[in-house]
Simulated assay, not measured.
Amino acid sequence: MTNILFAAGPDLWAEYEAPLRTALDATGLDYQLAYEADPESVDYVVYAPGSWLQDFTPYTRLKAVLNLWAGVEKITGNPTLTVPLARMVDEEGLTQGMVEYVTGHVLRHHLGMDAYIANPEQAWRPVVPPLAGERPVGILGLGTLGLACAEALSALGFPVTGWSRSPKTVAGITTLHGSDGLSEALENAEILVLLLPDTPATRDLLDTERLAQLPRGAVIVNPGRGPLIVDDALIAALDSGQIAHATLDVFRTEPLPAEHPFWAHPKVTVTPHIASETRVPSASRVIAENIRRGEAGEPLLHLVDRAAGY
């Protein structure tokens, strides 16, 4: 019997219990799935940030922790967690949702749609945008989500430059890495998409100096992590015209406080962390497959590199 503890809160338990059982039934495993369990009996923990479970020491039989979200910054530093940790990579739901969000907002800014959507004076302004091939797009972060977005935008004709911390080769995409590569990626990006994880190496990455490296009038789309951008530096860049607009889906504090200047800034679009929600049915299948693999002695998918933080 494989014992699985769902340690992700009562509301999520109500959403996930039936889909998880369906996905686990399909694996043929003999399992027990529960919201409460004797720690010494638990083989796998299904986890979400903010869970009541913070001390893993009593879980002496534990084989792996399976995170429900892509972000793992709230658990990677837990010193009591010594077993493998897998993050959520859900290409059916999470990845496709991110591709749709990023593609939609890149096209919105590329086509200048805001001028027509908000046009109370009924002004006739026939401004023709360049074609996609004349609009360089930069993507910081070439993990599963960044790569999928880069390929989608490239397929639409945008010249895409992707930057990652380590070297990568992707057909049809200009790939850069390292500090010199970051400067080059920024200098060429008329639209910049941020899809990096929140780690000590990426926190405050877009500060005053790096925002100044972007072409004047560039647009930023951030569905990655809030701490990637220095808020005050971004506001100053928006006020000066260095940045034309910022579409932000993630923030240092969520929900974004009512008094935060992003809410009222005319050049900021705030979306409430909706860029890529985990879809329960497909995420349940990802969790079930990893448990099946663990019980079969196969390598787990989407393991987190604790040293890198993702």
Results as ranks from 00 to 15, higher is better:
158 F>I: 10
158 F>E: 06
158 F>T: 07
161 T>K: 03
161 T>I: 03
162 G>V: 14
163 W>C: 02
163 W>E: 04
163 W>P: 00
163 W>M: 07
165 R>D: 01
165 R>H: 08
167 P>M: 00
169 T>N: 14
170 V>M: 10
171 A>Q: 15
171 A>H: 11
171 A>M: 04
173 I>K: 03
175 T>I: 12
175 T>M: 11
175 T>Q: 08
175 T>E: 12
176 L>V: 11
177 H>R: 00
177 H>S: 12
178 G>Q: 06
178 G>T: 04
179 S>G: 03
181 G>R: 09
181 G>N: 06
182 L>Y: 13
182 L>R: 02
183 S>N: 13
184 E>H: 15
185 A>W: 05
185 A>N: 03
187 E>C: 04
187 E>Q: 15
188 N>Q: 15
188 N>F: 00
189 A>P: 00
189 A>T: 00
191 I>G: 06
193 V>I: 13
194 L>Y: 02
195 L>A: 09
195 L>T: 08
196 L>A: 06
198 D>A: 11
199 T>F: 04
199 T>W: 01
201 A>M: 08
201 A>G: 06
202 T>C: 07
204 D>A: 14
206 L>Q: 14
206 L>D: 12
206 L>Y: 02
207 D>M: 14
208 T>L: 10
208 T>R: 15
209 E>D: 14
210 R>S: 07
210 R>N: 13
211 L>I: 11
211 L>T: 05
212 A>N: 10
212 A>T: 04
213 Q>G: 08
213 Q>V: 03
213 Q>H: 11
213 Q>E: 06
214 L>Y: 01
215 P>N: 02
215 P>A: 02
216 R>V: 14
216 R>D: 13
217 G>W: 08
218 A>G: 09
218 A>T: 05
220 I>G: 10
221 V>D: 12
222 N>M: 08
222 N>H: 01
